[in-house]
Design a protein around this nucleic acid. Structure first.
Lengths: 204, 204
DNA sequence: CTGATTTATACGACCGGTCAACTATTTTTA
DNA sequence: TAAAAATAGTTGACCGGTCGTATAAATCAG
C-alpha cells in the first residue's frame, strides 16, 4: 500500500487557517506548503490547484464544525434558545480567533466567497453550499419558534436568509473595524428580524 | 506649469472598476495600467503603491457618489421615504453593475474592506471612514423617523449600524449567489430592523 | 518488488516596484 | 522675442522575487 502520510490533511488545516487569517489572494501556495512542512511537489500530488485545495479545505472545515451545529441547534432546546445559543456560539468563535490571530477574522465562508465569487465558479458553488447548510439550521429553529408562537414570521426560510445576511454583514463590519464590540448587538438584531414576541425572549 | 494630463484620474476610475468587478488580489498593477493606457512608470509617478491608488480610488468614488446620497436622503422627504428611496437606490445600483459587468458585484467598500482589513491598515482606515459616512445618512433618517413616531428605536445610531450590517450582508449574499433576486427583500429587512410602525409604512 | 508518497529542482510568466532618459509645455530672463 | 530654464508628464527596460505548475529521481511501506 505504499507509505502513509497526513500531508494532505495538514495542507487543509494550514490553508484554512492562513486564508481565514489573511485572504485568499494574499496567501501563496509556498506559504501554505512551508507552514505545513510539505514540499510544493507534494502539494500538487494531493491537489491539482490552489483553488482545489481551498474547496477541499473549506468543505473539511464544515465537516469538522457540523457537530457543533448539531449541538447548538439540538431539538431538545426551545427554538429561541437555539437561536440564542447560536448567537453566543458565533461570538465565542470570533473571540477565540481574535485571541489566536490577533484580529477579528469574520465569517470564513463569506470572506472567501465574497473575495472569489466573481473569480472562480468552483469556490462560488462551494460557498453557496456552505451558506445553505447554515441557513437550514436557522430555518428549522425559526420555523419551530413560529409554530410555538414565539416568533411572528410568514416564511421561515426567507427569514433565515434574512438573519444570515445580517449576521455575515455584522461579522464583516466587525472585521473592518477589527472590533469584537461590534458583535455585542448580534442577538438583538437577530431577534428583531425574527420578530420575537417580547415576553418570550429567553433573555427576558 | 509643464504639460497637463488626466492619467492620474484615469487610473482611479479603472482601478475602481476593475477591483470592484474582480477583487484587489486578482487585479494587477499591469492590468490597471494597460486598461487605463498608462505606462507603469507613470503609475508610480502618480501613486507610490498599489495600496495608495486603491485608497485614492475609493475616496474619489465616494466623492462622486455623495451627491446621490444628498439627493436620496434630502430632508424634504419623510424619513421613511428616505429609507425607502435608499433601498431602491442600492438595488438600482446593483442592477446597473450587473448589466455592465455581467455579475453581482456587491458593496465595493465592504468588499475591499473585507478582503484587506487584516492586510493593510491604510485601506482598513479608509473603508471604516467610508462606512461611517454611509451610516450617518442612515442614522439621521432613522432619528427623524423615531422623532416623528414612525419608528420605534432606542438608539438611532446603533440602529443605523444594524441596518448597515444587514445591507452589506445582503449584498454579500447576492454576490455569492450572483443573483439580484436576493435583494428583493431588502426593504422588508430594513423596515423590520427599524421597527417601522406598520400603518406608517410608505408602501402601506 | 511494487507502487504510493516525498524530495529537489526547475520552469516561464508575472508580481509590485524602480529608474534614467526623454518629450512637451510654461515661465524666466536678456 | 527668442533662447534658456524650470516644470510636468511619459516611456519602457529592468529588478529581485514569487506565482502556479511540472517532473524526474529518491524513498519506503506492504
Amino acid at each position: 500500500m505504499g507509505r502513509t502520510s497526513n500531508a494532505g490533511k495538514r495542507l487543509l488545516e494550514v490553508a484554512f487557517d492562513l486564508i481565514h487569517d489573511h485572504s485568499y489572494g494574499s496567501v501563496s501556495v509556498d506559504q501554505i506548503c512551508s507552514r505545513a512542512r510539505v514540499n510544493k511537489g507534494s502539494f500538487y500530488y494531493y491537489y491539482k490547484s490552489k483553488t482545489a485545495l481551498v474547496v477541499a479545505a473549506y468543505e473539511e472545515r464544515w465537516r469538522l464544525k457540523e457537530p457543533d451545529y448539531e449541538r447548538v441547534f439540538a431539538l431538545d432546546a426551545a427554538p429561541l434558545e437555539r437561536l440564542s445559543r447560536w448567537c453566543e456560539y458565533v461570538r465565542s468563535t470570533q473571540r477565540e480567533r481574535f485571541r489566536r490571530y490577533g484580529h477579528v477574522c469574520g465569517c470564513p465562508y463569506a470572506s472567501v466567497g465574497g473575495e472569489l465569487a466573481t473569480q472562480d465558479k468552483k469556490i462560488q458553488r462551494t460557498t453557496q453550499n456552505l451558506v445553505e447548510r447554515h441557513v437550514r439550521y436557522l430555518a428549522k429553529a425559526i420555523e419551530d419558534a413560529r409554530d410555538g408562537g414565539d416568533a411572528c414570521v410568514a416564511d421561515p426560510l426567507k427569514t433565515a436568509e434574512l438573519v444570515h445576511s445580517y449576521v455575515i454583514g455584522l461579522l464583516l463590519r466587525a472585521k473592518i473595524y477589527n472590533d469584537l464590540k461590534v458583535l455585542a448587538d448580534l442577538e438583538t438584531g437577530v431577534f428583531a428580524l425574527v420578530k420575537v414576541n417580547p415576553e418570550k425572549n429567553p433573555r427576558h
